[in-house]
């Protein structure tokens, strides 16, 4: 690990000031940052510890939930209002990592989680995300865990978060505070596509600190599910995952989808929300046929590689499963 200075912020303002310094990094749960610092994939010179700031609160308001940036994954997942009003989020969180990690990992940290691309973590290989314009060994390498959506000729690293997939599907907005004050960023704009600058992953300016996340809790959110497919039963990153929510109208015989929400994980370079698929579902009956058609639409632009071609079909099936479960209700 490279030497660094360490300061514990006593207030948000102090944190923002510290975080705006060159080569600074915020430390919250540390589950990703410390790991990458040990590998020297990340080598910040200045660590600003924000873990003691008063940002742990989870608030249930009319119309939505406010998740404090320092609320732990466990606290969010077990919160009764989260479970009731946005079950997909609770399921997504519980499907990630292990209890120990979830007890330490925070909402803000999860938003800023880095990819698990094996090349990103291996200093002996080429990675444009780690070292801009140095090349990417993953493109022609072992791509089983890589993205099939949103990649570029510079980077195909998959976004690893489960939580962000659920948040992306349900119009979450991230409140950040920086040297220029506070602003809100839609979760779907928070993560950037790699394009020609895979090293730039977040729509954040230097010093901007995540304060909280607001998620509107709609009828579709209340009828939502998260399905994750992985190589073992627990403690593995997603091959494919899907957060889905439905608002249905009509009686039991002639139900119609009023509104649908869909986002995929494990397949995109960022949490993959599909407005197009959601539009295709609106007005359709909640049947496997409609689900499959929407899934075909979503995956039409997929660009699989040698080892991850299976993800195209698996993603469709996962999406059908999540929508089916959502239609069945909790």
């Amino acid at each position: 690990m490279r030497h660094f200075t360490f300061e514990r912020a006593k207030s948000v303002d102090e944190a923002v000031k510290g975080g705006a310094q060159p080569e600074a990094a915020f430390l919250a749960g540390g589950t990703s940052l410390v790991d990458l610092m040990k590998l020297e994939v990340l080598t910040p010179l200045r660590i600003v510890d924000v873990s003691r700031l008063d940002l742990q609160k989870i608030e249930a308001r009319t119309g939505g939930l406010v998740l404090g940036a320092l609320a732990t994954n466990t606290d969010v997942a077990l919160h009764p209002e989260v479970r009731r009003r946005l079950p997909a989020l609770a399921e997504a969180l519980l499907s990630g990592a292990s209890p120990q990690l979830r007890n330490a990992a925070t909402v803000g940290g999860n938003l800023l989680q880095r990819t698990r691309c094996a090349y990103f973590r291996d200093l002996a290989t080429l990675c444009n995300k780690r070292t801009p314009r140095s090349g990417c060994d993953a493109l022609e390498g072992w791509t089983r865990m890589h993205a099939i959506l949103g990649g570029s000729n510079q980077c195909i690293a998959a976004h690893p978060s489960d939580m962000c997939v659920a948040l992306a599907a349900f119009d979450a907005r991230v409140k950040v505070r920086g040297p220029q004050g506070e602003r809100e960023i839609a979760l779907t704009d928070f993560h950037l596509l790699p394009e020609q600058h895979p090293d730039r992953e977040f729509a954040l300016s230097p010093g901007e600190l995540v304060i909280s996340v607001f998620v509107p809790t709609t009828a579709a959110a209340a009828r939502s599910r998260y399905v994750k497919v992985r190589d073992r039963a627990s403690y593995a990153f997603a091959l494919v995952s899907c957060a889905a929510g439905l608002e249905l109208s009509g009686g039991t015989s002639g139900r119609i989808i009023r509104e649908a929400r869909v986002a995929l994980g494990g397949v995109g370079t960022k949490p993959w929300r599909s407005i197009e698929a959601e539009r295709a579902l609106a007005g359709q009956p909640p049947t496997k046929d409609s689900f499959r058609k929407a899934a075909e639409l979503l995956l039409a632009g997929a660009q699989p590689r040698r080892d991850n071609a299976f993800k195209v079909e698996l993603a469709k099936r996962t999406m059908v499963r999540a929508l089916t479960l959502a239609a069945e209700g909790a």
């Binding site: 698990r116 094996a118 090349y119 973590r121 291996d122 002996a124 290989t125 060994d137 022609e140 390498g141 072992w142 865990m145 190589d231 073992r232 039963a233 627990s234 403690y235 593995a236 990153f237």
Partner: peptide
């Protein structure tokens, strides 16, 4: 292995899976 560079890419217990309790 990454067959192009001849290097093992599953070099930690996140990428090299052994059964978890749930399995």
């Amino acid at each position: 292995y990454d067959e192009k560079i001849g290097r093992i890419m599953t070099r930690d217990l996140a990428d090299y899976h052994v059964p978890a309790h749930a399995d």
